[in-house]
């Protein structure tokens, strides 16, 4: 469960570059709920996600995860129950280390590390099993340097690392945006598999209208630092991409969106 209440964030506060990225956001995501997040460029999606992850701290408001107030907790401390996959496939893994060593880092996520050698045969077997789920043949290349793998393979490993120690919350920030469509599909399938099998509370940002509708229990739409639409599961099932676009039109009518914006949304999502 994630409870976000009254979160406000300004960047470059007081200067001419001041940006109000988030404005009084309230949001409750239930346990095991899978939420997709869409919105215009610069609407504050990544900022919101980073705030949950802990590498941006809010100006106002509070964040609760599974009943714990984590508003000002450091990122590495939150990592014990929050894990994430970045848009950039190169950020999620250490390129100079082997696949096994990268997995070891995730294996001890949020735990203390001691001067002992844990990368034993049995642990390597475990890693092999997990890697075989990816269906990329990586289980045979445990001691290969990650830097030599493709972006899709690295993103798949990052995803595996994120769910290796079943986190309370999984955060995905356009994690397929930098991949070619085929690999993107593969990663999306894996995502669905991991989320449903682990019953993970998930917040996923996407730029694909189709993904937004097909995946998850609920879709949230952001604009200018505000949540402007919250589509529950029941309504979502009935919606088509056209309906969604009609919704944008609707918003425009309620003068929440300018015609240019609708145009830009069409361009983005169709």
């Amino acid at each position: 469960m994630i409870r976000i209440s009254g979160i406000t964030k300004k960047f470059n506060s007081g200067s001419i570059d001041e940006v109000e990225a988030l404005k009084e956001i309230d949001l409750l995501i239930d346990r095991h709920e899978f939420v997709t997040l869409i919105g215009t460029n610069g609407s504050g999606k990544s900022t919101l996600l980073n705030m949950v992850a802990g590498n941006i701290l809010p100006d106002q408001g509070s964040i609760e995860i599974d009943g714990r107030v984590v508003t000002n907790q450091k990122e590495y401390r939150r990592a014990a129950y929050v894990s994430r996959v970045f848009q950039n496939p190169y950020l999620g893994t250490a390129p100079g280390m082997t696949i096994a060593e990268n997995l070891l880092m995730a294996y001890y996520r949020g735990k203390s590390r001691y001067p002992r050698i844990s990368l034993t045969k049995s642990l390597q077997e475990l890693f092999k099993d997990k890697l075989s789920i990816l269906e990329m043949g990586l289980e045979e290349r445990l001691n290969q340097i990650v830097g030599t793998l493709s972006g899709g393979q690295r993103q798949a490993i990052t995803l595996l690392m994120a769910v290796l120690q079943s986190p309370s919350v999984l955060l995905l920030d356009e994690h397929t945006a930098a991949l070619d469509p085929k690999t993107a599909n593969q990663v999306i399938r894996l995502t669905q598999k991991f989320v449903s099998e682990g019953k993970l509370t998930t917040l996923m940002i996407t730029h694909s209208m189709k993904q937004a509708l097909e995946m998850g229990d609920r879709t949230i739409m952001m604009h200018h630092g505000r949540i402007i639409e919250d589509i529950p599961a029941t309504e979502k099932k009935r919606l088509t991409v056209e309906d969604l676009l009609a919704k944008f039109e609707d918003i425009r009518k309620r003068e929440k969106l300018t015609p240019e914006l609708v145009k830009s949304l069409r361009g983005l999502y169709l």
């Binding site: 990122e75 990592a79 970045f86 100079g96 280390m97 990268n102």
Partner: peptide, 17 residues
């Protein structure tokens, strides 16, 4: 290994707690 990973990719190790 944590030390080496930290030098290699601090963003990643930070995300790993």
């Amino acid at each position: 290994i944590t030390m080496q990973a930290t030098g290699n990719n601090p963003v990643m190790v930070s995300a790993q707690g």
